[in-house]
């Protein structure tokens, strides 16, 4: 069997990618397109919905249906698309600023509603496109364009939020682990209900430069060290967990999704 390349989903006349050298977005895009190919997703039955931000530009490179929306609102648009056409594969690409900072309310409610969307959130620890200001996932104490003295706020655990809000599938992986990322994206695409894959991919241009991690290779090495598979992470003491984060599948369940529940409502209404 030949390996999937994902090339048939790549809009090649839009190359080169606009992202900085050292950015992990290309790795996530590759993982997504290869997952499409391995699952044989049909472009006409696939809709990629994006918000605003570096990762939100990904739709420019994808040869499926696409909707590039306003900042933070991609999940809301995607919800409408999926609600009227349940057979579509709807994939939502958002960054941390887009997905859980300005768009946090929609994130919570898309998960609660368990609408059958696959959200792929690239967490780069800051607002990259506007020049590296802090977002809801910027680690506490770290430096950005708007935390000159260090971030006084705490970072949000995006996966824990999705799980608590009711998502059916939640996984986290780093861009160092591209193949595992691709496996999780495939599981997420196949899962009915709201699924989230969080890709940890710190912005080397801004976050890295502001936090003494300017060289992308060093960044990659750190991701390898800091991202600890779930089973191992959970065996560690709290002190040992300091500075590390958990990777792997956090939630996997099969609660009925919105469209299934709503189809039941239609049947109920007509029976009354």
């Amino acid at each position: 069997m030949t390996h999937a390349t994902g090339l048939k989903y790549l809009k090649q006349d839009s190359l080169p990618l606009m992202w900085c050298s050292g950015c992990g977005n290309g790795i996530v895009l590759g993982a997504l397109l290869r997952a499409f190919e391995e699952l044989d997703c049909r472009p006409e039955e696939t809709v990629v919905v994006t918000g605003i931000g570096c990762w939100g530009k990904a739709d420019d490179y994808i040869m499926t249906n696409a909707l590039h929306t306003t900042h933070g609102r991609a999940l809301a648009f995607a919800t409408g698309i999926k609600a009227v056409n349940p057979k579509l594969q709807v994939v939502v690409l958002m960054g941390d600023g887009d997905g859980v900072t300005i768009g946090g309310n929609h994130f919570v409610h898309a998960a609660r509603r368990n609408i059958d969307l696959t959200a792929i959130l690239v967490n780069n620890y800051n607002y990259g496109m506007t020049g590296g200001q802090f977002s809801a996932t910027t680690p506490s104490g770290s430096f950005t364009g708007t935390t000159y003295y260090g971030n006084p706020e705490r970072e949000l655990d995006v996966c824990a939020l999705a799980s608590a809000a009711g998502a059916n599938f939640v996984a986290r992986e780093t861009v160092y682990h591209g193949h595992r990322l691709q496996d999780y994206i495939k599981l997420a695409l196949n899962k009915r209900g709201f699924s989230l894959v969080e890709a940890i991919s710190p912005c080397s241009t801004h976050y890295g430069a502001n936090n003494k991690m300017k060289v992308p290779v060093e960044f990659m090495r750190r991701l390898k060290e800091k991202g600890v598979p779930q089973a191992k992470y959970r065996r560690l003491s709290e002190a040992e967990q300091e500075g590390l984060f958990e990777t792997g599948i956090m939630t996997d369940r099969d609660a009925p999704d919105f469209n299934t529940r709503y189809a039941e409502i239609r049947t109920l209404a007509r029976g009354l």
Partner: peptide, 17 residues
């Protein structure tokens, strides 16, 4: 929806659907 921002977003998505 969770607010009016999401409401019109979903309406636009549904129309494109």
């Amino acid at each position: 929806m969770e607010d009016e921002i999401a409401s019109i977003g979903a309406v636009i998505g549904a129309s494109l659907g």
